[in-house]
Amino acid sequence: MDMSSIEFDIIGPAFLAGLLVLSTHVPLGREVLRRGIIFIDLAIAQIAGLGVIAAYGMGWDVDGWQVQVIAASSAVGGALFLYWLEHHFHESLEALIGVIFILAASTGILLLANNPHGGEHLRELLTGQILWVDIHHLIPVIVLYTLLLMLWFGLRSKPGSLMFYIIFALAVTASVQLVGVYLVFSSLIIPALATQNIRPQARALALAYLVGAVAYALGLIVSSMYDLPSGAIIVWALVVSALFLKLLYRSRMFFAVNR
């Protein structure tokens, strides 16, 4: 163990990116869990990537912001399709989302058979690495997420189904590129799962945020001390801090302190 190896200017931007991802993914994750559509993030991310590959397949020479526009519109398109599915095939929605994920992934391979350059973009879209995050990358995401959060929490009581799907698609398209699919999935599901049975809702939400933030901090510090790939360690930290919260709650220590 080597505390001196922690360089805060290296893990600082990564931690900021983590907090940013949590800001939208914690509330969205609670909704995902409530609806029982766990694999929606994988499907949406894959569809966003597919859009980019398709653009290349059609011979568009896209780069930079154009890639983002295509990825985001594909994701929103996919989300609208899922919204339609929810209304018509509600009982098998989760299974259908799984099928769409695997279909999008396979279509990607088929399109790539003639176009390996799209493959690089697909990889970039799906395997963001949290340590590579640069402060400049975060600014557009901060703007986007502020808008999304205002929509999510700002609207009267609860955003409707359609709003949820659109906000979700945009949030995931941005986060997957920052931190990669593994961290997006775990940031959505694990804090939400840890606080699922906690009432009132406001306390559950606050604790979910806390679980997430503690985990990102812990994960980055451990990753620095033992020089391990940060993304994978944060996934573990999320599970550990979620279990810790569960344990605290079960032993009622938490209540005792709180009252």
């Binding site: 360089e7 290296i10 590579w132």
Partner: peptide, 12 residues
């Protein structure tokens, strides 16, 4: 390459 903190620190 998998980004590790040590890689960034060495590059710096």
């Amino acid at each position: 390459v998998q980004a590790r903190p040590s890689l960034l620190s060495k590059a710096r």
